[in-house]
Design a protein around this nucleic acid. Structure first.
Lengths: 341, 341
DNA sequence: CTGAAAGCGCTAACAC
DNA sequence: GTGTTAGCGCTTTCAG
């Protein structure tokens, strides 16, 4: 099979319309006044030949690619999937395309991103400490950067969105305390002292403030916040602290995994153990019992994220934004105090 | 803030290394023999200046962009998320980048795909009948196309992967029948006669072959195969056929939604109603009771899909591949016959 | 083994 | 209002 693809260029439609290439550019980009007659001829030629301008060639004039890379730990995480869905939905309306980059393996992706002249990168997940240099490289190459609040470098060059997961963690501890719990555990997926996430710190701090003994389960090395790992962390929790009455997951998936494992082992939820998540993914509404959690509104977040990215690209803005989480009542928290009264 | 980004070009590293741009190209692309000495000087300059070749400029020489668009109905669908994850994981190893395109709105995306000189498009979800023209346009512009088996046009120009969901549907009906069920329902998300999916047809055909009265619930217009719609379809099913004993969902999400709704209404699963899904998403393993389903092995599928895409792009191949589903025993099918004996 | 020069499709001065 | 021309960063003949 021959590969005879006739590339329809601006020149061809110029000839077709009986004008010069420049004129074609001008009518297409509205970059200078063109007579009604000529404009019409050009548009007709465009229609007839089904012409689509070449983004690559435009990009070479320093116009940008209208392409944004979204780096996520894993698109299999429903929260990130919702977020990506929402960003893309907002971005396509303005002609932006999105590259999905998994694994957060910057060494592999960043040179590629630069080579592709991608306009901006949104780091939805945490950037490892030994990969900071790659962010520097992005900035040096004119790529805009948006991160979460964990990233504390180059503060006046990058934009950030604070997801307030730490705040949610604090609220979760308080809530359980107010409902009479004292043996409150935290299932953490980050390596202790990773410096990438505030949730464990907030948990410890809050427990201390309440005069409670902390029950934190942390892995040796940072792991993904998945259902599977939630189960594993819960198993370890049970071995070490069998009398725990409440569990906070670092996110909904971890909480759901833990809860599922608990139920499989015969625990009743919330009668025997209470659970709280952080995220508010759709799935948390669909399990029985419904998970009590803090909802992040991924749709709104995605829209906001694109808005920020857009302004970074078009207007060279740098902003810092706080995205709040909303308490979402579920069925997985038992009120011990109420019963005691 | 100034935007003084110094673009490091091939010319600059040529100067740095004291050679000509051509030589730089040749050592970078191994396109002709270069003396060890010169090669070394060039490589050093590349290192020193942190040079990354411009993909856009290469693309303009007709070299391709090493970019693949993945069109999905919704990345929020866990099956598609797993698939995308796996494709991307395989592709990045060979330097490919992936554009995630939601909504299957071809009118919006296809011109953009052409303009961006994207090498290939994988349609993971169904292509509407009135959008066939856009596929033609892709082919005319040299973009490779990979679809599912539902797409019956341009058969010698595009590659396809048959996901065998129809086969799974047939097996599901047989399975339920063998276990003594006769009131077997099918929750369908496609408009009747959409021509986009074989599952309903297979269901009807199989029921007829078994001499059973079909109980199919279909929407007026095609809807997404989501948990939410599974609930809605199940509600309608209950209204129309309250004595149903088994339900097959078009995919796992639909089955899970239906099952969840059933449980909320006080039905016991599988004692009162049996459920079967098609997909085998991870979630189906994590609910209680575990969903009986047909597993599609999204990871293997994604790897295969990339392999096909790669061969289409690099070697101009066109292939047709059958991806089989595997029966995955769960806890949601009651064996009526066994009990009767 | 290495260089010079043309050209990919487009934009942006600069002319008329 | 419209045309001419010079690049953007790269590959690729064609010459040394």
């Amino acid at each position: 099979m021959e590969n005879v693809v006739l590339k329809i260029s601006r020149n061809m439609i110029a000839k077709e319309a009986g004008v010069t290439p420049t004129t074609v550019s001008c009518v297409l980009n509205n970059t200078r006044p063109v007579s009604q007659k000529v404009r019409q001829r050009v548009m007709e030629a465009v229609e007839r030949l089904n012409y689509v301008p070449d983004v690559m060639a435009r990009a070479m004039q320093g116009k940008g690619t209208k392409q944004i890379a979204v780096m996520v730990d894993s698109i299999k995480n429903p929260f990130l999937a919702e977020l990506v869905y929402s960003i893309e939905e907002a971005g396509i309306k303005k002609g932006f395309f999105f590259n999905i980059c998994g694994k957060m393996d910057l060494k592999k992706y960043i040179p590629n991103i630069i080579a592709r002249k991608i306009d901006a990168v949104y780091f939805c997940s945490e950037i490892k400490n030994d990969e900071v240099q790659y962010v520097r490289q992005l900035l040096d190459n004119g790529v805009k950067v948006l991160t979460g609040s964990h990233f504390s470098h180059f503060t006046d060059e990058i934009s950030r969105i604070d997801m307030a997961t730490g705040v949610a963690m604090g609220k979760a501890v308080r809530l359980l305390y107010e409902r009479g719990h004292t043996k409150i555990a935290c299932l953490n997926t980050f390596r202790v002292d990773s410096g990438l996430d505030s949730r464990l710190d907030v948990y410890l701090q809050e427990m201390k403030a309440l005069g409670l003994e902390p029950i934190a389960i942390s892995p040796e090395h940072t792991i993904s916040a998945t259902i599977e790992n939630g189960k594993i962390l819960f198993e370890e929790l049970l071995r070490k602290y069998p009398d725990v009455t409440a569990v906070i997951g670092l996110n909904d998936l971890v909480a759901l995994g833990a809860m599922n494992e608990a139920m499989r082992r015969g625990f009743r939820v919330p009668e025997d153990i209470s659970f709280i998540g952080i995220d508010g993914i759709e799935l948390s509404r669909l399990v029985v019992p419904q998970l009590t959690t803090f909802w992040s509104n991924a749709k709104a977040l995605g829209q906001k994220a694109f808005e920020i990215l857009y302004n970074m690209i078009e207007n060279n803005e740098v902003v810092s934004f706080n995205h709040d989480m909303v308490y979402l009542e579920g069925e997985t928290v038992r009120d011990l105090r109420k019963e005691k009264i």
